[in-house]
Amino acid sequence: MLERSYEKFFRQNRLPHLWCPGCGNGIVMKAIVQAIEKKSGWTQDNTIIVSGIGCSSRASGYMDFDTLHTAHGRAIPFATGIKLARPDLNVVVITGDGDCTAIGGNHFIHGCRRNVDLTVILFNNNIYGMTGGQASPMTPLGKKATTAPYGSIDRPFDACKLAEAAGATYVARSTAFHVQHLVKMIEDGLDNAGFSFIEALVQCPTAYGRRNKIGEPAKMMAWMRDNAVMKNVWDKLPDDKKIGDKFPIGLFYKAETETYDEAYHHVIEMAGGAAK
C-alpha cells in the first residue's frame, strides 16, 4: 500500500478513535489534516489545534500537533490567547454545535466580531452526543432529543448566518458526505487572514439518528447528498423549491478587514512595545 501522507498527522497509538461506528467526526478530522497538509509552511510545530468539550472536541487528542483540549465552550478564548501571544502560530479551533453555539455562544460571536485570525471548524451533529442526546441550539425543529421527547420546539441557529452577522470574514458550510468539497472549504478558511468559520455537517447515528429513526450512518450521509445544494445553484433556486430539508453548502461570505492580532500589535507599539 502506498503510504497515506496525512496519517503522519494522527497519533497512531491513539487509533482507533472512540467515536461511535459510523460517526462523521472521523471524516471531518481527516479533512482538516488534509487541508493543513496542503498549506505550505504549516507544520506540526507551528500549527495549534484547540478544542472545547464534546464528541467533536475529542479530535484534538488524535491529531499530532500541539493540541489543547480546553473548557466547555471556551476553545475560542483559549485560541485567541494563543494567537495574541504568538501571532506567528497557525491556530485551528475544533468545536461542536453545543460547545460553540450554546455554552460558548458568547465567545463565538465575540471571536467573530473581533476578527481574530483563527479557523473555527464546527462539527454539527445536531445534538449533544456525548452526554446522551440532549437538544442543542442546532437541533432542527421537530426533531427528537432526550430533552425534547415530543420534538424540539426551539428554533435552531443557522451558525453560518450568525457568524456572518457577528463579523466573521470567511463563512462556509460543507458536509461529511462532500469530502473533497469540505477539504477545499477548510483549506480556503485556513488561507483567510481573520476569523474563518466552517460548519461541517456530520451524522450522529447513535444519539440523533437512532432517536429520530433516520437509520444507519450511510442513510444519514445519503440524506446530506440528496439535500445539500451548492451555493451558486441555491441562489438561483426559486423560493418554492427551497423546501423540505434542502440546505445550501459552499462559501457564503468573505471579506477583508484588519485582524485582531494586527490591531493588538498596533496597541503594543503605541504603548511602547511588549516586555521582552
Binding site: M1, L15, P16, C20, P21, G22, C23, P205, E216, P217, A218, K219, M221, A222
Partner: peptide, 20 residues
C-alpha cells in the same frame, strides 16, 4: 486494485459498503 484493510480500526458502520 489493491486493498489494505486495517481491521482493528474497522467498526463495521457499513458506509463503505453502502457507497461502493
Amino acid at each position: 486494485s489493491e486493498f489494505t484493510l486495517k481491521l482493528d480500526r474497522c467498526k463495521g458502520c457499513g458506509i463503505c459498503v453502502a457507497f461502493c
